[in-house]
Amino acid sequence: MPTFATAGAKLHRSGTFVLRGLLLNRRAWPNFLSTLLEPVILLLALGMGMGRLIGEVTVHGQIMSYEQFVAPAMLATAAVSGVVNETTYSFYAKLTQRLYEGYLATPLTIGELAAGETAWALLCGGVYSSAFLVSMAALGLAPSWWVLLALPGAALISLAFAAVSMAATTFMRRWEDFEQVSIWMLVMTMCSGTVFPLETYPGWGQAIVRLTPLYQGVELLRDLSVGRLTSGTAGHVCYLLAMSVAGFVLARRRLNRLLAN
């Protein structure tokens, strides 16, 4: 039966991954800043630049300015891109360089390893989301304090994508496979009801887009950032939670197989 002492030790061992990430990346902040710039530039160009041409859009019966429509979508994108680097390229490198074999010679379990890497990715995602939220506010796109509620929403998006992309990375066989990652990231970023409202698609297209994880995340942040909590909001939360659990369980199972002997 687990006691507080063993739970503490588990937490400590997983926490080591966060510490490792911090130590290794303490000089990487220029890279961090330039990665953050990407969603900010998209927000400036597509949101504010095109916003002058478009004016207002009607989404789910609500009229809003185009930049207010795009901003939560770019926040969701920042939450995703903040974790995807750590859980794809970087995670794959650690897997193939056999770093984990050494770790597992210590009392560390594979579950703790997966949890630790997820925690580190989440921290990265959290920093990106918060920094993006600050830029949003600086651009005058944070209408009220409700916008702070978007942060836990962004963390949930980060968690779901971290878990799933970790699981996906365990299936990668060579570096070239990651080309797919950047392709799908861009397609997802552009097509998930981010740059234009879902209603623009024909009926069948809407049905497909509704099922995509980024659409769920974007809609969640659109709700949270204005404090509109409905049953739909709960639906988005459940979708992302299910995705997190499924991704984590699969990642752990795959890691068990890859690293067990």
């Binding site: 597509l46 095109m50 041409l53 004016g55 861009l186 397609v187 552009m190 740059v195 234009f196």
Partner: peptide
């Protein structure tokens, strides 16, 4: 290896921004 950046990405932008978001631009530019 360059198919995506050279050929598909510009067409994605043309479709998503030009046709998708562009349908909300009412006046000529």
């Amino acid at each position: 290896a360059t198919t995506f950046t050279s050929f598909l990405m510009p067409l994605l932008y043309l479709g998503v921004v030009g046709i998708g978001a562009g349908s909300y631009v009412e006046n000529d530019v």
